[in-house]
């Protein structure tokens, strides 16, 4: 299969590879997929408390080149967005940006799921914070 230049670029130079401290209350972690399916994405984001803007995002992905590219692109897009803006990212945006063929659309779906899972995790953490912590935010 021929890959688009953008997929190749993200595969060869993946952005934001790594991990954030999953115990940090401002970090949300999303892990989607399963090894048996050949795709597992871990996507993490850290939200700046004062501004509510995503200041950092990291990923690690087990999967094909398109899955790696989709998650790499997702971390690029997340940075600088508010949580609500991030929730508006759609898998079709990723498909268009990376020119993914139909057989690789599930990679983009997985990336959107990973973003949502990470934000869900972040929101859950925020919800259980003590009132004192919340007052400081």
């Amino acid at each position: 299969m021929a890959y688009s230049d953008k997929v190749l670029d993200h595969y060869n130079n993946p952005r934001n590879v790594g991990s954030l401290d999953r115990n940090d209350p401002n970090v949300g972690t999303g892990m989607v997929g399963a090894p048996e399916c050949g795709d597992v994405m871990k996507l993490q984001l850290r939200v700046d408390e004062a501004s509510g803007v995503i200041e950092d995002a990291k990923f690690k992905t087990f999967g094909c080149g398109s899955a790696i590219a989709s998650s790499s692109l997702a971390t690029e897009w997340l940075k600088g967005k508010t949580v609500d803006e991030a929730l508006a990212i759609k898998n079709t945006d990723i498909v268009n940006e990376l020119s993914l063929p139909p057989v690789k659309i599930h990679c983009s779906v997985l990336a959107e799921d990973a973003i949502k899972a990470a934000i869900h995790d972040y929101k859950k953490k925020q919800g259980v914070r003590s009132p004192a912590e919340a007052a400081l935010a």
């Binding site: 991990s19 892990m31 989607v32 997929g33 399963a34 090894p35 048996e36 399916c37 050949g38 795709d39 597992v40 994405m41 871990k42 690690k60 992905t61 087990f62 599930h106 990679c107 779906v109 997985l110 799921d113 899972a117």
Partner: peptide
């Protein structure tokens, strides 16, 4: 992420995977 988890000593066969695709 799987290699990272394996190196942390996590038994991948015991993980609940949130499989969405495929």
């Amino acid at each position: 992420p799987l290699y990272e988890m394996a190196k942390e000593g996590i038994d991948l066969s015991t993980v609940q995977w949130a499989a969405e695709a495929h």
